[in-house]
Nucleic acid binder design. Structure first.
Ligand code: MN
Ligand code: MN
Ligand code: ZN
Ligand code: ZN
Lengths: 140, 140
DNA sequence: TTTCAAAATTGTAATCATTACAAAAATATG
DNA sequence: CATATTTTTGTAATGATTACAATTTTGAAA
């Protein structure tokens, strides 16, 4: 359980008015760190926040990513997943069980790309394949 | 202009019957290497292949990616882009002009995956930011 | 060449994530 | 409290992708 006040001040520091629903959504992202879709956030928080609208979840996530307190992951073909961990790290997608795993990746492990004159503000390293659990079960 | 016969034999070698529309679509991908969307392929090839259906483009690209003669790129939020270059390389997306640029990336530049027992068959390294051309123009 | 089964293509309708937008509600400020 | 501003909601639109049945094309056998 993460301190409500901490999240509020964190949002505030990043130029986001810490309204109750925003705090709950950020709390969900941080506590679960399950790379949820909008629909997962919406349907799970609906129990806790009656009357929550899916549009609000969309609006809030757009705000979060624009303020860089969350990152949008495009590792799926059809929907966006969200991550409150904005530090550089990698993602592995299992194409059998659809699981999405983090793996660590430090800035200096990243290939040095000589992009003269370019400014880079997002790094995404996605791997796809079959996870160990699925391989042990002989699925492939 | 790439040799038609070369594309036919390439498709054949990869278990794809080299039907005329498939050859044209592969030729488009190779010659333009512009990371097109389905719609770009469809609307541009429609001139050359009257009566082409968008469904056929979808079907063909699904076949190509399943046979691994093309790769689907999920660098955009809303649509998939395709690449006939299946060798490992990186992609940079400019969020001002929406340009999508290749950059070279060798297998041994990639960080090791610290995940024992996983099998990896796709590597995607995406960078986002502002390209040099847009920066020179003072856009940001 | 004719025949015919299998594979491919087409057009249309459905699906589904996301966005647009205007009305209603909540919030902040004096 | 009064009121301007911001946020939320609900619904409708958008747009990419998929499902699917009917039609056409293909390729091999006869
Ligand atoms: Mn993550
Ligand atoms: Mn490329
Ligand atoms: Zn798995
Ligand atoms: Zn640019």
């Amino acid at each position: 359980m993460i301190d409500d006040a901490k999240i509020k001040s964190f949002l505030g520091q990043n130029g986001i008015s810490p309204l109750p629903k925003r705090v709950k959504i950020m709390q969900y992202l941080i506590e679960k760190h399950n790379h949820p879709t909008v629909d997962m956030i919406y349907s799970e928080l609906l129990h806790e926040i009656p009357g929550l609208s899916k549009t609000t979840v969309y609006n809030t996530l757009k705000l979060f990513t624009s303020k860089r307190v969350a990152v949008a992951l495009n590792i799926e073909d059809n929907e966006i997943r969200y991550d409150a961990d904005t530090a550089i790290h990698g993602h592995f997608k299992c194409r059998v069980c659809d699981g999405l795993f983090d793996f660590s990746l430090t800035q200096d492990q990243l290939p040095d790309i000589p992009m003269q004159g370019f400014s880079v503000d997002e790094y995404h390293y996605y791997l796809k394949g079959v996870c160990s659990s699925c391989r042990e079960k002989g699925l492939e």
